[in-house]
Amino acid sequence: MLLSDVKVVEWSTWVAGPGCAGVMADWGASVIKVESATGDATRAFFPDTAESPGNPVFSMENRGKRGVVLDTAKPEGRAALIALLKQADIFVTNVRPGSLKRAKLDYDSLKAELPHLIYANVTGYGLTGEMADVAAFDITAFWTRSGVAASTIPPDQEPFPSRPGFGDHFTALATLSGVLAALHERSRTGQGRQVETALMRVGAYAVGWDLSLHLRYGDVTTAQPKQDRMVALSGFFHTGDDRWFVVVVKSANDYPNVMRAIGRHDILADPRNLPPYSDIHVVRYVRAALDAAFEAMTLEQAGELLTAADVAWAPMETLMDLEMNPQAHEAGCFVETPDGWGGSFWGPASPVRFPGVDTSPTGPAPKLGQHTREVLAEAGYDAAAVEAMIASGAAT
């Protein structure tokens, strides 16, 4: 496996931090997940019982990991975490910076003792500044504060939140890229380093096309009501069988090819109707012609027309459509996930495939504290010391 010699300790909850470590687990890394006695918050979202085995959300982020429960507020629990980090290559945490500093588990407190360690902070707003310790989720920091929502939602619509974990998964992959860059550097220097991501910064990068224009020119046109958009062909169209599809113009040939295909040579004959447009009324006229033409077709008919015209288009599909789409299976969108009860279920695959390498989950998501004794023994604790920690509540 790609990362079979890499050891990761992850002390995080929800999605972005666990997701980063989860992809590494899929790629063969040995990942130890450290939790409190109450467990990762996503454990509570769906049941994980013999009657309903395998919490799908928790499993997606945590399959293939081993689970340990430590109370790092107790000296013995903190010392146990340090013992795990001494054996690790990578540490991933989304504990808030202030809490890490108070516990003397921040990078500055550990770097002299653990110079080899790649220490990854997953944050909402960064490690410094007045908002460093403000509570953050991807819906607040990635979607809303970064400008992604305002650039996406037209101003004539009531704002809506992103789907759960949407920005978190962007941030998980950004963190992973930084971690792997630091791992490569360490192969040359022997020294670890701190890696830091912020949901807000990843959101700014995700909406970077719009942001780059704003930063350069001071203004940018983002989401607009349909009737105000200055491109007639790009966007969503509705068909007579109540389906939606989207078109993206990729070349100057797309517009004339489509207008000929729908039989509107008359529109092409008038130079005023040819892009680039300067009159919104012309755009609305052309768009109305396109709307009428596609409303008279089924999705299948519209798709055949657009494909024959070599236009980039796609139907708006549901998750059920995606599941049933043979190409989604060819692209490797799904993976069989052990449920921890002897069975398995289908879950989303990690987003990169290495042809010829099996990156299927190496095991189910751990039960809370399932591997505490095993992992502490590997870290050098004898059986008596482990039982004493459990008796004191420093471990579970």
Score class of each variant (00 low, 15 high):
Cys333Pro: 06
Lys33Asn: 11
Leu274Asn: 08
Glu323Ser: 08
Gly147Asn: 11
Ala288Ser: 15
Thr337Arg: 00
Ala269Glu: 15
Pro271Arg: 11
Trp346Met: 13
Val335His: 00
Phe294Gly: 06
Ala181Asn: 10
Arg373Leu: 03
Leu305His: 04
Ala50Asn: 03
Asp310Gln: 13
Gln327Asp: 06
Phe58Gln: 02
Val23Glu: 13
Ala261Leu: 07
Ala252Cys: 02
Ala41Met: 15
Gly218Phe: 08
Glu374Leu: 05
Glu158Leu: 07
Pro361Met: 07
Ala261Val: 08
Gln87Asp: 11
Asp168Phe: 10
Ala365Leu: 04
Ser59Arg: 05
Ala331Gly: 05
Arg102Asp: 07
Phe237Ile: 12
Gly54Gln: 11
Ala308Gly: 02
Glu10Ile: 13
Phe294Val: 00
Val92Leu: 03
Ile262Arg: 14
Asp310Phe: 00
Gln370Asn: 04
Arg353His: 14
Gly17Phe: 02
Tyr381Glu: 01
Thr13Ala: 06
Ser350Glu: 13
Gly235Tyr: 05
Leu3His: 02
His169Val: 09
Ala269Tyr: 08
Trp341Gly: 03
Phe237Cys: 02
Ala223Pro: 00
Val248Lys: 07
Ala395Pro: 04
Ala103Glu: 02
Phe170Pro: 01
Glu51Ala: 15
Met131Arg: 13
Pro361Tyr: 10
Gly39Ile: 06
Tyr217His: 14
Asp133Gly: 10
Ser177Glu: 12
Glu10Lys: 07
Pro56Gln: 05
Phe237Asn: 03
Val220Leu: 06
Val283Pro: 00
Val248Arg: 02
Gly356Phe: 11
Pro115Asn: 11
Lys65Leu: 10
Ala232Arg: 09
Lys101Asp: 09
Ser350His: 14
Ile390Ser: 07
Gln87Val: 03
Ala293Ile: 00
Glu317Gln: 15
Asp48Cys: 10
Thr362Gln: 09
Ala269Thr: 09
Ala269Asn: 12
Gly54Asp: 01
Arg63Cys: 11
Val375Leu: 05
Ala172Asn: 14
Val375Asp: 07
Phe137Ser: 10
Gly22Ala: 03
Asp219Asn: 12
Val207Tyr: 10
